[in-house]
Computed example of a mutant assay.
Amino acid sequence: MTSRSAAQPTILERVAAGDPGAVKDVLSRYSALVWSLASGLSRDPHEIEDVVQDIFVDVWRSSKRYDPRVASEATFIATIARRRVIDRRRRAGRRVDPEPLEEELAPGADDPSLRQVDIEDEAMQAKEVLAELSGDRRRVLELSVVTGLTHREIAADTGIPLGTVKSHIRRGLVEVSERLKARRVAHGEDGE
């Protein structure tokens, strides 16, 4: 008995083999699926088009990994699409919209070398305060803030339940904030 891939290659197997007609076939068959998954990301059609393009680029790159014995082509492509949409959401969530500064800068505050010293000092203080936290709370907070893992990824990596991960992060951030504020007050730096 011959296997399906030996008798007639799938579209993704043809893409992996470099068949130029396969690209058109993939787009024809799966563009609606990919578009519908990408549409959940945004109402902006330009952003959706960008995501769809990124997804199909990933499909071309990943086509050699496709195994019809493991999953259907639709499942394989949908998995790639979901991952790309999730990545986009994460990046969008981390993006900070710049806001104009309303306050007048102090004399010398426009000197980049002074601002760099302030940033380095703040980072050092935050690192010191983070090191003061208890074991699991510190570890979970570092994985979230420093490494950029999601709550679910942290739970999977550490074996700590998801709810506990969220509590550690929330309480850890509050504790770090309170300790930093206490340091500023102790050094007469807090303007409150």
Results as ranks from 00 to 15, higher is better:
Gly18Asp: 05
Ser134Pro: 04
Ser31Leu: 10
Val140Arg: 08
Arg152Asp: 07
Asp58Asn: 09
Leu33Asn: 01
Glu132Gly: 10
Gly40Met: 07
Ala16Ser: 13
Leu180Lys: 04
Pro107Ala: 13
Arg137Lys: 06
Thr79Ala: 14
Ile160Ser: 04
Arg138Met: 06
Asp157Gln: 14
Ile169Tyr: 00
Arg4Ala: 15
Leu173Val: 01
Val59Lys: 05
Lys181Thr: 11
Asp136Gly: 13
Val185Tyr: 08
Ala74Gly: 11
Asp97Trp: 06
Ala32Tyr: 09
Glu178Ala: 15
Gly21Val: 02
Val129Glu: 01
Leu149Ser: 14
Gln116Ser: 14
Arg152Leu: 12
Val26Thr: 13
Ser28Gly: 11
Ala78Ile: 00
Ala131Met: 00
Ser134Met: 05
Ile86Thr: 14
Arg88Gln: 11
Val96Arg: 15
Ser113Leu: 12
Lys64Phe: 02
Ala92Pro: 01
Asp118Lys: 09
Val176Gln: 02
Glu178Lys: 15
Ile55Tyr: 02
Val129Met: 00
Arg115Asn: 09
Arg82Thr: 13
Ser36Thr: 04
Leu173Cys: 07
Leu33Ser: 07
Thr147Asn: 09
Glu99Tyr: 08
Ala92Gln: 10
Glu13Gln: 14
Ala32Asn: 13
Ala155Ser: 15
Val70Tyr: 02
Thr147Ala: 15
Ser167Asn: 11
Phe76Cys: 05
Gln116Thr: 12
Glu128Arg: 14
Trp35Pro: 01
Pro112Arg: 12
Ser167Arg: 14
Gly21His: 12
His187Trp: 04
Ser72Gln: 04
Thr147Ser: 13
Pro20Leu: 03
Gly188Asn: 11
Leu162Trp: 03
Ala156Gln: 10
Leu143Gln: 00
Asp118Ser: 06
Arg115His: 08
Thr158Met: 08
Gly172Leu: 01
Arg179Gly: 07
Asp25Gln: 06
Val145Tyr: 00
Arg29Glu: 09
Ala126His: 02
Arg61Tyr: 03
Arg184Asp: 03
Asp87Asn: 13
Arg115Cys: 05
Met124Ile: 03
Ala7His: 15
Ala109Asn: 03
Ala182Cys: 05
Arg61Pro: 01
Asp121Trp: 11
Glu142Val: 12
Gly191Ser: 15
Leu162Glu: 02
Ala17His: 06
Arg184Val: 02
Ala74His: 03
Glu178Ser: 13
Val15Ala: 08
Lys127Gln: 10
Val174Lys: 07
Val52Arg: 05
Gly172Val: 05
Ser3Pro: 14
Asp87Ser: 14
Val85Tyr: 00
Ile55Gly: 02
Asp136Thr: 12
Leu41Ser: 06
